[in-house]
């Protein structure tokens, strides 16, 4: 059973640049990802929007494996700031989990 943290998205979203809600779940990002990260960004961003913090934290390796190469962004039809959104998640995990 998943635990919902309703404030999660606000804790992750430090500026308006975090635009996970623009994602329309088409899957192009996953199809073109050179790392083959199927989870990123669509499922992961959906977890953030739904407040599923545990699900996000369970995927820490995926979040830090992203190359930030923007191949997904260059192909994204919804102009989601995928690389920057991933960096927002890293910042959150660095603070909350790693205490950096």
């Amino acid at each position: 059973m998943a635990l919902v943290n309703p404030d999660f998205v606000n804790e992750v979203k430090r500026t308006e640049e975090f635009n996970a809600s623009a994602c329309m779940n088409c899957g192009v990002c996953s199809a073109v990802c050179p790392m083959g990260l199927e989870l990123l960004p669509r499922k992961l961003f959906r977890y953030v929007l739904l407040g599923l913090e545990d699900k996000v934290l369970a995927n820490t390796e995926t979040i830090y494996s992203c190359l930030l190469c923007k191949m997904c962004e260059a192909n994204c039809p919804a102009q989601v700031h995928i690389a920057e959104n991933v960096r927002f998640l890293r910042y959150y995990i660095n603070k909350k989990v790693f205490k950096l």
């Binding site: 790392m35 830090y64 494996s65 190359l67 190469c69 260059a74 192909n75």
Partner: peptide, 22 residues
């Protein structure tokens, strides 16, 4: 060009094996 394939280098500091595969 705009759709160039990443060399994998950004993964080097945390996941050296993944970087090498890419």
């Amino acid at each position: 060009g705009k759709f160039t394939l990443c060399c994998g280098g950004p993964a080097e500091s945390l996941y050296p094996k993944k970087a090498k595969e890419r």
